[in-house]
């Protein structure tokens, strides 16, 4: 894959992703999601991560070197696949264990980052 073809995974919380009016919930969207891994199937390499009361399926088949541990916090970057029944699965191309992450700080910083980026883009276009 060419370097220029790599899309950045937009930072999104599971709560924002699964919100009915979410701008991120679309087929093919490149995303970065974070949550506690609560289920994993060795046969299918499908994991489920949870943040609060929202969960998301993650296809980890390309993450051969990632060591999976139930109960750990993981961050995945990949493309969202929205199926016909409107169920979503993230096809992960990158994954890492982030045990020890301060999730409150992460979510607050994410809001600040989004606002900062929007302000900069507004200034540039005005």
């Amino acid at each position: 894959m060419a370097l220029s073809a790599i899309k950045s995974g937009a930072l999104v919380s599971l709560k924002d992703l699964m919100h009915p009016s979410s701008e991120f919930f679309k087929d093919g969207a490149s995303l970065r999601v974070t949550g506690k891994l609560v289920e994993y199937s060795v046969e299918t390499a499908i994991a489920i991560i949870v943040d609060g009361n929202v969960n998301l399926k993650i296809d980890t088949q390309h993450l051969i070197e990632l060591s999976i541990r139930i109960g750990s916090i993981y961050q995945f970057i990949g493309e969202l696949l929205v199926q016909s029944d409107n169920e979503a699965i993230l096809k992960a191309r990158v994954g890492r264990n982030v045990d020890g992450i301060d999730l409150n700080l992460y979510h607050q910083s994410l809001q600040l980052l989004r606002q900062f980026q929007a302000d900069h883009l507004n200034k540039r276009t005005n």
Binding site: M1, L3, I6, K7, S8, G9, A10, L11, R32, Q75, I77, R93, V94, R96, L113, Q117
Partner: peptide, 23 residues
């Protein structure tokens, strides 16, 4: 996060870093 890596031994390593805002 390193999201891409392309090594040409004894020449160069190209890689891409994604900080969540862009690569």
């Amino acid at each position: 996060v390193v999201v891409f890596r392309d090594l040409k031994p004894n020449r160069f390593l190209k890689f891409s870093v994604d900080d969540g805002t862009a690569c």
